[in-house]
Structure formats: structure tokens, C-alpha cells
């Protein structure tokens, strides 16, 4: 099946001001496509969380959205630094966020578990010193 939409957004390390703009843009595009409000909200929340993670934790990365007739695949890849202990990172309440992120109301250690909860499929791979790839699928 030919993809309906393919979008890529670059997300810079430490860019707190614009963090979330890619997710907001993608949400608008998917709404125009007629995606239901419920799926749209779950996707937007997970996308915003992963976008914030790129800003807060990564050295910079990319969000890739692929829409086909049955769902939306969202892939987040970054240039590092990688997650040493994924099991720990997946725990609610565990966070390594800095003070700047916390002052904006984030870094409560809810991001990764919240992505997993909102996505229909979720996988995370990480290699310290190399980078992290998170793949999420949302069924339409």
C-alpha cells in the first residue's frame, strides 16, 4: 500500500522553545486526513513525549511519520548518547532530566511508559555511545 503521508522533522538538543512543534504540525495534518479524535490524541501525546525526550536527553535526532491505510508509524532516532539501562528508563517516576526540563513541568519520569501506553505497538532499542531508536505504531 502506497504511503499517504511521509514526514520527517529534525529535533535539536536543548531546543525547549520549539519542542512540540513537530507533533503539533503532524497532529494538524492527521486531523485534516480525518483521523479520529481518540487516535489523534493518543498519537499526539506519545509524539510530544518522544519529541521532548529528543530535546531533553538526546544530542539531536529525527522524528519520522509514515501514514498508510491501516495506521501511523512513528520512528524517533537520535545521535546518542543512548540509554544505559532501558528497564530502569521504562519505570514510572525514574528520570534523568535536567533542571531546565523540570522547570518547564517535565522530567517526572512518565515519558517512556506514557508512550508505551498510548501506542498500539512500542519498541525501543538503545546502544550507549551510539543512539536510541523508538518505534511506535498507531492503528487507525
Amino acid at each position: 500500500m502506497e504511503g499517504l503521508i511521509h514526514e520527517e522533522y529534525y529535533v535539536n538538543k536543548g531546543d525547549y522553545v520549539t519542542a512540540g512543534s513537530a507533533s503539533a504540525d503532524m497532529k494538524r495534518k492527521l486531523r485534516q486526513l480525518g483521523v479520529s479524535a481518540l487516535v489523534l490524541r493518543r498519537l499526539a501525546v506519545a509524539s510530544y513525549e518522544v519529541e521532548l525526550n529528543l530535546v531533553i536527553h538526546s544530542l539531536g535526532g529525527k522524528l519520522i511519520f509514515d501514514v498508510d491505510s491501516t495506521g501511523v508509524t512513528l520512528i524517533s532516532t537520535d545521535k546518542g548518547p543512548g540509554i544505559p539501562d532501558i528497564e530502569m528508563a521504562m519505570r514510572e517516576g525514574y528520570s534523568t532530566a535536567n533542571d531546565e526540563a523540570r522547570s518547564l513541568g517535565f522530567g517526572a519520569g512518565m515519558g517512556l511508559p506514557n508512550m508505551k501506553r498510548n501506542a498500539d505497538e512500542f519498541s525501543i532499542e538503545s546502544q550507549p555511545g551510539v543512539g536510541t531508536t523508538i518505534t511506535m505504531r498507531f492503528l487507525l
Partner: peptide, 15 residues
């Protein structure tokens, strides 16, 4: 009581 643009953005994501 939090006051920054991410309060609005969070609201946007959640409708």
C-alpha cells in the same frame, strides 16, 4: 500554577 508555552502545547495535544 505553571506558566510557560508548554502548558498550552500540552493542552493542544490532549484537546
Amino acid at each position: 500554577g505553571l506558566m510557560n508555552p508548554h502548558v498550552i502545547r500540552t493542552s493542544e495535544m490532549l484537546d
